[in-house]
Design a protein around this nucleic acid. Structure first.
Lengths: 228, 228
DNA sequence: CAAGCCTTTTTTGTATGCAAAATGATGCAG
DNA sequence: CTGCATCATTTTGCATACAAAAAAGGCTTG
């Protein structure tokens, strides 16, 4: 009667998740070659499930297949980061609009709680914690839209930009501003003001993009597309 | 010097495309079980590349993996069709806005040509041709946005709703209205009026969704999610 | 020393074999 | 006939073997 209890873990699913994490967290650098034998040893699986995992990540856009020459981690260019933020901005705007119609009290309460967690991290200067809360809030808003397709699409794109996250060592000024924007976002959500929330989220994402792109340009954490 | 000439075709890529076509065109019905042996014979490949193809389509959302029980064609529910149209509407609105900034004269000329092709199909009552031109126009607008990430995301979602396309045997009234909407869309694009184009595309998609959902409800081309 | 060609090695792409899980059939008790 | 346990069959998941392609190394030649 309970299908949830016995969910068999398959090697290729495991490999997919671990490979994805390795890419998102930069353990596998952008442009790096995925050598099957090496990854098989590292993950402790044979080539069959590993190759299936690589194919999945290829469809997610995290790796690029090179016929007869294996696969590489998709290069992160300024252009693709900008493009991805543009799309995510539109998606979050839609999510905000829908969330104002569909959010439950429990979901709103959870977002409020995350918001205060985030304020705490901000007050302590805990940047890593701040990023975690921030991510959780945005994902919660998207989830509250009630549109699972939207949520899945958003998560996929989010994985791409998270690869550039560590470089977004934002300035104190930008950080304070982001927190202020979040105050407004929460207020609009509480008021169920979809039009306003839509605008706020779109602007918030735009500012975040500007900050990331600015940080990227100075730190060089992302290349400009020039690979071999 | 020409990388395009020598693009080796790999079996798993071929299998992916053919399987995807089979699903989009309804040859493999929603909810149908993907039996590896059968598909191997049909496609003339062994299980390894076939399984890789299935994994790719799983990441695209066209098939659902069932651990230790293979895979099925993802059921098309009214809810997922509605969700997908919502997301596509937001993406097209963004695309229109960006296209007004970035479209080239050649791209605009091509869209205009497609528009007249579409009018010709409409005048002849050629519904299939109309759908083709209509698709081409929307894809061209998305491409003209200059945002490759947006285009890729849009195409992926489009594959999902195309599965329900054949049921959208729209009424004459809705057809005429859609053509009228396209006139306005083209005009806004020519005028580079991003704000207006954004609104028009969003409304156009919304109307299309209503038409498809209405047709679906009467013809039953899509189920309501009741699969075992 | 550079450039090209050939050989060797490595790596990828595909097919196949094997074990485990699921599916379906059979028989039996109630 | 129904419910259910057991066994045979099928199907899936994974590992491995083999073939083709690419990369690396070495040789020759200019």
């Amino acid at each position: 009667m309970n299908d949830l209890a016995l969910a068999p873990r398959l090697l290729h699913e495991d490999a997919t998740e671990r490979l994805r994490d390795m890419i998102v967290q930069g353990e596998l650098a952008a442009g790096a070659k995925l050598v099957e034998r090496v990854l098989c040893e590292h993950l402790g699986v044979s080539r069959t499930p590993l190759r299936e995992a690589i194919k999945r990540l290829a469809s997610e856009g995290l790796v690029a297949l090179q016929p007869n020459r294996g696969a590489i981690v998709t290069p992160l260019t300024l252009a693709t980061v900008r493009e991805t933020f543009e799309v995510m901005g539109a998606l979050e705007a839609l999510a905000g609009q829908l969330a104002c119609r569909n959010i439950t009290d429990a979901q709103l309460a959870e977002i409020r709680a995350l918001h205060f967690d985030m304020l705490a991290c901000h007050a302590r200067g805990d940047l890593a914690g701040y990023f975690r809360c921030n991510q959780a809030i945005h994902l919660a808003i998207v989830a509250a839209s009630g549109n699972a397709t939207l949520a899945a699409t958003y998560r996929n794109l989010n994985a791409h930009v998270r690869r550039a996250r560590y470089v977004a060592n934002l300035s104190r000024g930008r950080w304070d501003q982001a927190v202020a924007e979040h105050e407004e976002i929460l207020a609009a959500l509480v008021a169920r003001d979809g039009v306003r929330l839509q605008r706020l989220l779109s602007e918030h994402l735009g500012a975040k993009m500007t900050a990331v792109l600015g940080a990227v340009e100075t730190t060089g954490g992302v290349n400009d597309g020039a690979y071999d």
